[in-house]
Simulated scan of single mutants.
Amino acid sequence: MSEFIGELITLIIMGFALSMDAFSVGLGMGMYQIRLRQIFKIGITIGLFHVIMPLLGMVTGHFLSERFGDIAAILGGVLLLILGVQMIWSGFQEKENSVFTPAGVGLLLFSISVSIDSFSVGLTLGIYGAKIVMVILSFGIGACILSWLGLLLGRKVQGWLGTYSEALGGSILMIFGIKLLLL
């Protein structure tokens, strides 16, 4: 039971870290006064992509771990480190403000862009044999809630929090990458 709780807490923290880019982009997008109905749709769509992408990654990771064993486990830890560094780096880069409507193809592209990193983390979790249902629920629910929060807060504040939230998410992923490499 203690192992279950520990894994659940770890997955919730990882889901939070992965959802920080959706939160930070949502902050900026929310400043364009998107209607509440659209905010609801955006959050649900991002949540679904944060279920699909890690699921695909986990299936791939499970396959790789069966084929390559310890090498795949080391690569999984390194992948989390690289992803964390990339998130921190991109969080402090100047971003162009591209205004597009988060509907139709624009919403799909937005959802893919903020959930692609969850494929990589899913790959690592598949290598380590994490529980699929716990992963996809933690990631999907976390992404949905943080997207809604970012979009709603974006209606109220300027973008001062976005850079720091993405850097925080990257730091959390780096910590888990180091933890996996040291075990």
Rank of each mutant, 00 (worst) to 15 (best):
S19D: 02
G30P: 03
G142A: 11
M53K: 06
I88M: 12
G122H: 04
L75M: 12
A72G: 11
M87W: 03
Y128L: 05
S118G: 08
G28I: 07
L36W: 15
I34C: 07
I172K: 06
S113Q: 11
T101I: 12
G142E: 04
F63W: 14
E3W: 13
S115F: 01
I52T: 11
Q86D: 14
G57K: 03
I46Y: 00
G150L: 08
Q158E: 14
I175W: 09
V25Q: 01
V157F: 15
L75D: 02
K95P: 05
G140A: 07
E94L: 12
L182F: 10
A17K: 05
F23A: 02
L56G: 14
L151N: 02
L108K: 12
A130V: 00
H50R: 06
F110D: 01
L11F: 11
T124P: 00
A17N: 08
W89K: 14
V133S: 11
L180T: 06
D117N: 08
V99H: 10
L125Y: 02
L79V: 11
V157Y: 14
G106T: 13
R37Y: 04
R37M: 04
M29W: 05
G140M: 07
L27M: 11
L125M: 09
V99W: 06
E96A: 15
G170V: 06
G140K: 06
Q158D: 13
I82E: 07
W148L: 10
S138P: 04
G169E: 04
S113M: 12
M31Y: 03
T45S: 01
R67C: 04
M58C: 09
W89H: 12
I145P: 05
L11M: 13
G76P: 04
I127G: 00
A130T: 04
I132G: 02
I112M: 12
S65G: 10
R155M: 08
L8D: 02
G170K: 05
V121K: 06
L79K: 00
L123T: 01
V133I: 11
G104K: 10
L11R: 05
V25E: 00
G126E: 13
S113N: 12
M174A: 09
I42H: 00
L75C: 10
G26W: 02
V59K: 04
M53Q: 02
L123K: 02
F16A: 10
F63Y: 15
G150Q: 05
F4M: 09
I52E: 08
A73E: 04
P54V: 07
S113E: 10
T101G: 09
M134H: 06
G104D: 09
I9S: 11
G57C: 13
F100W: 10
W148V: 06
Q158A: 12
V85I: 14
F40L: 11
I88H: 00
Q38G: 03
I71N: 05
A73D: 02
G106Q: 12
F23M: 01
G47I: 00
V121P: 00
L36T: 13
I145N: 06
Q86E: 14
V135H: 03
S2V: 13
I5W: 13
L109T: 07
G76N: 07
T163R: 13
F4N: 07
F119I: 05
I52R: 09
S19F: 03
S113W: 10
L146C: 03
F110G: 00
L161T: 05
